[in-house]
Design a protein around this nucleic acid. Structure first.
Lengths: 97, 97
DNA sequence: TTAGGTAGTCAAAAAAATCTGACTTATTGT
DNA sequence: ACAATAAGTCAGATTTTTTTGACTACCTAA
């Protein structure tokens, strides 16, 4: 059941909610992400959860999926402009921690 | 099962995670909170969930519970200093929304 | 050609979060 | 004295999120 939210910050908060999204986002600040590397980097995570998180981050427009057609032929996830706009918030969050 | 988090922002994000916390926090910016008013103000919520959220916000040190011993003798929840430190982050979040 | 890597999907199970309704204790207003 | 309000708690049910393990499909290196 979907519900309307009254609090504007809620939407943004929800974008990074869930067990793995914040960590994925943080790693995306450093370099383009690749599925299996992520699975190795984030200990305790699992395929399904990462796949779901990546799909949602993509749907929310924070990450974009890019098929690299060169040599090792693989897929990358990059921060979008919208994703980059979130960096200062994220840093402020880290600053308080 | 508890797990250690690697991402520093995660802790802060978690403080305002959950279905009602952001909304509660937002209302706390305006005025001290009272349980039953909150229940009426936040449509769709319920006692138990609000009680849990308030308890957690208190444990996290964002709200403090105050017993007002005057005339109508009641309980208030106020933003703590730590809670107030979160205001700019919250505003930035709303600014992006 | 066979093994290993990459990038997943699917169904089902388990765990965590949220909701419901009944009940409590103390204080007010009439 | 009685009913209403305030501020909850508790057990159980329901819902949502997260995890597990099996299974695809494609490519590459030996």
């Amino acid at each position: 059941m979907e519900e309307a939210e009254t609090c504007p910050a809620q939407r943004l908060l929800k974008m990074l909610s869930g067990k793995w999204k914040a960590e994925i986002f943080r790693l995306a600040l450093e370099a383009p992400l690749r599925f299996n590397s992520l699975l190795r980097q984030i200990q305790g995570s699992n395929k399904q959860s990462l796949a779901t998180a990546l799909k949602e981050l993509e749907e929310e427009g924070l990450l974009e999926k890019v098929t690299i057609k060169l040599k090792p032929l693989h897929i990358e996830y990059n921060l979008t402009e919208k994703g980059k706009a979130l960096i200062p918030v994220f840093q402020q969050l880290e600053g308080l921690a």
